[in-house]
Each structure stands twice: as structure tokens, then as C-alpha cells.
């Protein structure tokens, strides 16, 4: 339990330290309007940059979520693997094989490319 508190303290304190550095106003004055224009090599932006960004790897992310679940089963398996031995290797082998079919199918349907 104390380790968790230590971890939380380290995370929060170092994060807070950097948050202080990032926002301490040192410079002379806040930016003027022309200073705040985003940098596009000298051109004027026509619209906000925030947009419904058309990312091209959405099938990969969905497959990734399903594959991630599989990782969660592997952690406990790794702990008892040495104890159970060959039977565990067989089970996980089958588990991995099943999921590799999913990845092979995804690859064949071309989802690991920019859509």
C-alpha cells in the first residue's frame, strides 16, 4: 500500500513541478494578435485547425482494442506459466493462434494501411 502512495506522490509531485515551470509567466507581455496566428510558413490560416480530423487508421485502432483485451489475459498467464508448464504453453498457444487469425484476416483485408 505504501508503494502505491509513493507512486501516486511521485507522479503528482513531479507533474506539478513541471506544471509550475510550464505556466510561470516570465516573459514581458502576453502575445499580440498577429503573434498568436498559428505558423503555416507565413500563410494566413483560413479556418481553425481543430476539425473532424479524418484519421486513416481507424480500423487498426478498433482491432487494437480487441487485441488489447488479449494482453490482459496474458499477464496472469505469465505469472503461473513456470508453475504449470507445458499445459500453459499449449493453452496460450491456442489463444494466441485464435487471435493471430484475426490479425491475419485484418492484414489480408488491408486495414494496416492508410485507408
Amino acid at each position: 500500500m505504501t508503494a502505491l502512495i509513493a507512486l501516486a506522490l511521485i507522479l503528482l509531485l513531479s507533474g506539478g513541478l513541471m506544471l509550475l515551470l510550464a505556466q510561470v509567466e516570465v516573459g514581458p507581455m502576453p502575445g499580440s494578435e498577429p503573434q498568436k496566428v498559428p505558423f503555416l510558413g507565413g500563410s494566413e490560416p483560413a479556418t481553425h485547425a481543430w476539425q473532424r480530423f479524418h484519421l486513416r487508421y481507424y480500423p487498426m485502432t478498433l482491432l487494437f482494442i480487441a487485441f488489447e483485451m488479449e494482453m490482459m489475459f496474458m499477464y496472469p498467464w505469465a505469472v503461473v506459466y513456470a508453475e504449470i508448464g507445458a499445459k500453459a504453453l499449449a493453452e496460450m498457444g491456442m489463444f494466441l493462434l485464435i487471435l493471430s487469425i484475426g490479425i491475419f484476416y485484418g492484414w489480408r483485408e488491408g486495414i494496416f494501411r492508410w485507408q
Binding site: 489475459f73 485464435i98 487471435l99 490479425i103 485484418g106 486495414i111 485507408q115
Partner: peptide, 25 residues
């Protein structure tokens, strides 16, 4: 439960690929 979860995950992966990607083989 462990192995059926594997098969369910496989079903999820296949459906995801079928439903979300426009271009296929």
C-alpha cells in the same frame, strides 16, 4: 471462459474489420 473469450475476441476482430474498412481484398 478463457478460451471462449479468445473466440469472442476473434469474432469481434472479424466484425470490426468487416464493418469498418471500406476497401477489402
Amino acid at each position: 471462459v478463457f478460451e471462449s473469450a479468445g473466440v469472442t475476441l476473434l469474432a469481434t476482430m472479424l466484425c470490426v474489420v468487416i464493418l469498418s474498412s471500406r476497401s477489402g481484398r
